[in-house]
Design a binder for these strands. Structure first.
Length: 492
RNA sequence: UCCCCGAUAGCUCAAUGGUAGAGCGACCGGCUGUUAACCGGUAGGUUCUAGGUUCGAGUCCUAGUCGGGGAGCCA
């Protein structure tokens, strides 16, 4: 592909004196009567944080023929500018484009009501104009960082010999057990087929109270959008050794928080022949790799986040890079929390071995007590999923059964990674399925992995948007994904 | 889903139950190698929706819708 114009990001790197053509959208336009009339048109094409300033003259050698039209350009107009890259006479930019011609590609038809006019806007408002918010400093930066991180995810795993597995979006097994699911169906919702009693005569009236007959549905059984690629990716792990999946994930939970989406992206690596310790090391390396990459590759955007979104962000991330994550058994964490209570710390919810930690407890550990990312390990069996590997009795001096699970907690966001070593022993797995009253039949292929050459293996899930929040300082998850899907929110 | 708070100009917000206001943005003009520009002026309103109380409701009451913060569920 040959393009005759220059990206703004490249224009900034071109030698002074270069002839350039740039194309983009007007960010700001100021004019002046000096030098017989000139306009300063800042143009952004989204390729980097800064727009480039184009100086357009009404008189002299570089006079443009349509100067009065250029004067009228407002924020959002699309333009194409020919000119020369010159050292800037003004402060605030090192180089600028001295324009020889400005072609107006698209005007803003009602500048008085342009939704992203040149002024401060709240994130709540910008969410209502998600199709235009990416033209702002913040959302442009978010979009570039998001891309940078997506690439880094693949590079991290590729460099370590992991294979990228496309796990299915639609799942016909109702056994993933990670929350409410969205149904996928082609049945007539108003009049679905019903299961007829065995002794029903042909043509008998349908019983509207009878269960829906999904054998007539598209997949011949109930189907849903996936809540996790883990079970599928485990199968590839048990053949390719190191694999990961990175795709959209769906939860139909009625969650109304700044940390939850109905549609989000999740990264799930799975490693064969590995235990929880190896799993946690991978998780730590991964988070540090993402952190380093975004600092190295998007310094312009990260500087903006540090200045305008979360003062101190860069310092915080530097600290993350330099400090080993704190590893801590759940049982130990309970002791720390109990000690804190003895010393006068007040929690809304009680702390008790065997119960799940509340948000406030996790935040205390990562934000107040350790002030750094913390990996909690070996949780009580009863609060974790069936597929997590049962530890030997007495692990960490725990008073009850634990499983080889881990949560990576980070300040401000809380849980960013959840993972575990998987139960590779068929008899133990079967006992767990039975204890939790899960439909054993549905797990036939998952159980097969334990019947045919079972191996220890482990993996985790990283919420991509939560990583975005952690690395940009953005406080609402709906602002780190282009078009957020949440309860009552699916516009665009 | 639960608790708390909110909805007024394009945006951010004011307005004791008694004439609907400012800043920014937009538009017009002035000044200026400008850059969160500055100075002067103009336009811009079914006060979220539906009921109710009242001589009179942006303001009080009820219900709903949407948004925010916190909690739960989790990534």
């Amino acid at each position: 592909m040959v393009m005759s114009w220059l990206k703004v990001s490249d224009a900034f790197k071109a030698p002074v004196g270069s002839p350039v053509t740039i194309k983009g959208w007007v960010r700001t336009n100021r004019d002046s009567k000096a030098d017989g009339g000139l306009c300063f048109v800042a143009v952004s094409d989204g390729t980097c944080f800064d727009p480039i300033q184009c100086v357009v003259k009404a008189a002299g050698n570089n006079a443009t023929t349509n100067f009065p039209d250029v004067q009228k350009l407002t924020t959002g107009c699309a333009v194409e500018v020919d000119g020369t890259l010159v050292a800037s006479q003004g402060k605030g930019q090192s180089v600028e484009v001295l324009a020889s011609a400005v072609r107006i590609l698209g005007l803003v038809e009602h500048p008085d009501s342009y939704p992203v006019s040149n002024k401060r806007h709240t994130f709540e408002y910008l969410r209502e104009v998600a199709h235009l918010r990416v033209r702002t400093n913040t959302f442009g930066a978010v979009a570039r960082v998001r891309h940078c991180l997506s690439m880094a995810v693949h590079r991290f795993f590729h460099e370590r010999g992991f294979f990228y597995v496309h796990t299915p979006i639609v799942t016909a097994s109702d056994c993933e057990g990670a929350g409410q699911m969205f149904r996928v169906s082609t049945l007539d919702m108003m009049n679905p087929p019903r299961v007829a009693p065995e002794d029903a005569k042909p043509g008998a009236p349908v019983d509207p109270a009878a269960p829906v007959d999904f054998s007539n549905d598209f997949f011949g059984k109930e189907a849903h959008l996936t809540v996790s690629g883990q079970l599928n990716v485990e199968t590839y792990c048990c053949a390719l050794s190191r694999v990961y999946t990175f795709g959209p994930t769906f939860r139909a939970e009625n969650s109304n928080t700044s940390r939850h989406l109905a549609e989000f992206w999740m990264i799930e690596p799975e490693i064969a022949f590995a235990n929880l310790q190896v799993d946690s090391e991978l998780a730590e390396d991964f988070i540090k790799y993402l952190t380093k990459t975004v600092l190295d590759e998007r310094p312009d955007d990260m500087k903006f986040f540090d200045e305008r979104i979360e003062p101190g962000l860069l310092k915080r991330l530097q600290h993350v890079l330099e400090t080993p994550f704190r590893r801590l058994p759940y049982t130990e964490a309970i002791k720390i929390l109990e000690d804190a209570i003895k010393k006068g710390k007040k929690f809304e919810y009680p702390v008790k071995w065997g119960t799940d930690l509340q948000s406030e407890h996790e935040r205390f550990l990562t934000e107040e007590h350790f002030k750094q990312p913390v990996i909690l390990m070996n949780y009580p069996k009863n609060i974790k999923a069936f597929y997590m590997r049962l530890n030997d009795p007495g692990t960490d001096g725990a008073p009850g059964d634990t499983v080889a699970a881990m949560d990576v907690l980070v300040p401000a966001i809380g849980e960013i990674i959840g993972g575990s070593q998987r139960e590779e022993r068929l008899d133990v797995l079967d006992r767990r399925i039975e204890e939790m009253r899960l439909p054993a039949k549905e797990y036939w292929w998952y159980r097969d992995l334990r019947r045919y050459g079972t191996v220890p293996h482990a993996g985790f899930g990283l919420g991509f948007e939560r990583a975005m929040m952690f690395l940009t300082g953005m406080q609402n998850i709906r602002d780190v994904i282009p078009f957020p899907r949440a309860p009552k929110q699916a516009e665009f």
